[in-house]
Nucleic acid binder design. Structure first.
Length: 233
DNA sequence: AACCAGGACGTGA
DNA sequence: TCACGTCATGGT
């Protein structure tokens, strides 16, 4: 078994199903997770159930750029108090109200603009699944945000790479600092089965694991997974 | 009180 | 290409 698949097996056995992507309108929760309020649905893979939920995932993907999820939840809750979070109401929502509501999620000027632009794009989709390149061309949506939308919102088996993934793989000796987004993405995709649920769980599991061992420097200092992998070769 | 979150983009060399 | 600055809240 390749190390990439071994890591997944270990993480899943350690932390279990993660219930991503969290939806704040969903009353599920997982108190074992770090710093979580609500919205996770561990072991349930039927999401999104409708177009509004899909849209909420996409908006959340934009809001969580370089930001903690608890702050994103606050932003979405703020929005939810004023408007039902769906494409039409957000498209018609005053930009200043949007900024005021999403303030806790950082960079609110930029993100409010991004959300407006994305919402117009979303409405034009008419239920279709966008290509990755289309998402990247909108502006304000980079590779990770696009992959999050595709993987969790549109159920497309496109692996999500983030800063944590790189940090962990560097520490485990599987890549170097110079590895690009696409290179890391390919490393994952070429070494695990092309399975939607596994893609979804794997990225979520990395975040959960990294929150514990890869937040403060020196990164991955007492990562039990590294100790295990070092002793096994 | 520094440090940094589930990034993206513009700039100048 | 790439290293670096900007964006600009809130928890630990």
């Amino acid at each position: 078994m390749h190390s990439i698949e071994y890591i997944y097996t270990w993480l899943f056995r350690e932390y279990g199903p993660q219930g991503w992507w969290p939806l704040i309108n969903h009353n599920g929760s997982n108190p074992t997770k770090t710093g979580i309020i609500k919205g996770y649905h561990p072991g349930v893979y039927s999401f999104p159930h409708n177009d509004d939920e899909r849209f909420e995932i996409c908006i959340g993907a934009i809001l969580t750029q370089n930001t903690t999820w608890v702050n994103v939840e606050k932003a979405i809750e703020n929005l939810n108090k004023r408007e039902r979070v769906n494409p039409v109401s957000i498209a018609n929502l005053d930009i200043d109200i949007l900024k005021e509501s999403t303030r806790p999620a950082r960079y609110f000027n930029q993100k409010a603009q991004k959300i407006k632009i994305f919402t117009d794009f979303y409405l034009k989709l008419n239920g279709k699944t966008p290509k990755s390149e289309e998402l990247l061309d909108i502006g304000g949506i980079g590779p990770e945000t696009a992959d999050c939308m595709l993987l969790y919102g549109f159920n497309t088996t496109s692996f999500v790479v983030d800063a944590y993934s790189k940090r962990m793989l560097i520490n485990l000796g599987l890549i170097t600092e110079s590895a690009t987004y696409q290179e890391v993405k390919r490393l994952f995709e070429e070494n695990i089965p092309r399975d939607l649920i596994m893609y979804q769980e794997y990225h979520a599991l990395i975040v959960e694991h990294a929150k514990r061992y890869y937040q403060k420097q020196p990164y991955g200092e007492n990562d039990p997974l590294k100790t295990l992998m070092d002793s096994n070769t």
